[in-house]
């Protein structure tokens, strides 16, 4: 099976980022800086070219357990050391094929040895400042 080509994601394009509703305080559905996290070396999201927000929500099953934030690629790139790289997944054992898969790099480096103190908190604050509304709210009906 051939790998999908890696494409350049234009700045105006949307990225859908999945958040577990288990991270939310009961009765409080606001986005929080703590929702922006590294998973396996980067922040994983889906590019709008190959995914809708609803598809992102349901990609791993149990969509009722997730909400979705829309981020804008160019706005992410404006933040400190963050980069946005299309990284489609195909034929990887244990992972669902996903042509939309995109990695946001930088947050993982911000807490590494030698990083500027507080840089990770700064990046998370800026991500929150830019993207603090839900594209799909927690507990939204499944479509």
């Amino acid at each position: 099976m051939d790998a999908w080509p890696v494409e350049i994601i234009p700045d105006p394009d949307s990225l859908f980022y999945r958040v577990s509703v288990g991270w939310l305080k009961p009765g409080d559905t606001r986005v929080a800086p703590g929702h922006f996290r590294v998973n396996k070396g980067s922040m994983s999201c889906d590019w709008q070219k190959y995914s809708t927000a609803a598809e992102t929500r349901s990609r791993q099953g149990a969509p009722e357990r997730f909400a979705v934030i829309r981020m804008i690629a160019g706005k992410v790139r404006e933040i400190d050391i963050l980069s946005v790289i299309h990284s489609p997944i195909r034929g990887v054992e244990g992972q669902v094929d996903n042509r939309a898969h995109t990695s946001i790099f930088g947050l993982e480096r911000s807490a590494a040895t030698g990083a500027i103190h507080g840089q990770k908190e700064k990046i998370r604050t800026e991500l929150y400042g830019q993207f603090h509304t839900w594209e799909i709210e927690p507990n939204a009906p499944i479509v």
Binding site: W23, K25, R30, A32, P33, G34, R37
Partner: peptide, 11 residues
């Protein structure tokens, strides 16, 4: 707000 963050940390 007191909330969960990455790797068992708390904000």
């Amino acid at each position: 707000r007191i909330g969960p963050a990455e790797d068992g940390s708390i904000d």
